[in-house]
Design a protein around this nucleic acid. Sequence first.
DNA 1: CGAGTGACCGCAA
DNA 2: ATTGCGGCCACTC
Length: 105
Amino acid sequence: MQRANEDNFRECIYLLVNQIPRGRVMTYGQIAALCCKPRAARIVGGVAHWGDTSLPWHRVVHKDGTLATGYPGGTEGHRKHLMEEGVNFINGKVDISKAVWWPEY
DNA sequence: CGAGTGACCGCAA
DNA sequence: ATTGCGGCCACTC
């Protein structure tokens, strides 16, 4: 699933995020790694903010399971939105261990 | 084209 | 366990 055309680092992110199934989440570092840029987790966030806002960025969380900061509504709205999709939460954080989705299939 | 910035990550006190 | 700092790469102005 790392079909990222070298020219389109952003598109790789778009595709990955766009394919995250409901009730699952991915980490910024993971997406970056799948795009051949294990250190570019920040770019994922950057693209998230400046890129296509139509994508389910609410399914993208930190590696610890904490939620992003700049999401419309804040972490509170973000958390609620994920719960609506069936994501399990622990201590106000995503149960990353169970909800993390890995597209290596 | 150059500089600044970021919805991050990992390690060190 | 929490807090602070640096580094990394791409995007925007």
